[in-house]
Computed example of a mutant assay.
Amino acid sequence: MMGADFIEMRDCAREGKLPVGVGSGSYISGAILDKNCRIGTNVRITNSAGVDHQGEDEPLQIRDGISIVVKEGQIENDFQG
C-alpha cells in the first residue's frame, strides 16, 4: 500500500469522491494499492476467481493475477472483486 501525497481537508462527499485511504469493513488481500487511491467501505478485493489479466483502463486492474488499484483510482462502497 503506497502512501498519500496530501491530507484531505475538504468534504469529499460533496465532490462525489471517497476519502483517500481504505474505508471501514474493507478486506484486501494480495493486492497493490497505488498512491492516493480511494477505497470505499465494505469493499472486498481478493481476485478469488483467479483472473490473470483484466481492466486495462479501469481503476482496478489485474496483471499476472495480482489486483492493482491504480494511482488516484476510486473503488466504490460495497465493491466485490
Rank of each mutant, 00 (worst) to 15 (best):
Q74E: 13
L60Q: 03
I62W: 07
Q74R: 10
I62C: 15
S67G: 14
L60H: 07
G55M: 11
N42T: 01
N42R: 08
Q74V: 01
Q61P: 00
R44N: 12
P59R: 07
I66V: 15
Q54G: 06
K71E: 13
V43S: 02
D57N: 14
R63M: 04
I45D: 08
N47H: 11
E72M: 13
V70R: 15
R38F: 02
N47G: 13
E72F: 13
G65L: 08
D64A: 15
S67P: 14
I45M: 10
K71G: 12
I39K: 00
T46R: 15
T46Y: 14
G73I: 04
Q61M: 11
Q54N: 08
R38L: 01
D57V: 04
D57G: 02
G65C: 03
V70W: 09
E76Y: 06
K71R: 15
E72P: 00
R38G: 04
D52W: 09
N47E: 05
V43C: 05
I39P: 00
G73T: 03
D64S: 14
H53V: 04
D52L: 13
V69F: 00
I45Q: 07
R38D: 01
E56A: 14
E76A: 14
T46E: 13
I62R: 06
G73E: 02
P59D: 08
G50L: 06
R44S: 12
N77S: 05
H53W: 02
E72L: 05
I45F: 08
I75A: 04
Q54F: 14
D57F: 07
V69A: 04
V70C: 15
E56F: 05
L60W: 13
D52I: 14
G55F: 12
G65A: 10
N47F: 09
N47Q: 11
T46Q: 15
P59S: 14
V51A: 10
D64G: 11
G65W: 07
G65Q: 04
T46N: 07
V43W: 03
D64F: 13
S48W: 10
Q54W: 13
T41N: 13
A49W: 06
R63P: 00
Q74Y: 03
D57I: 07
G55P: 02
T41G: 05
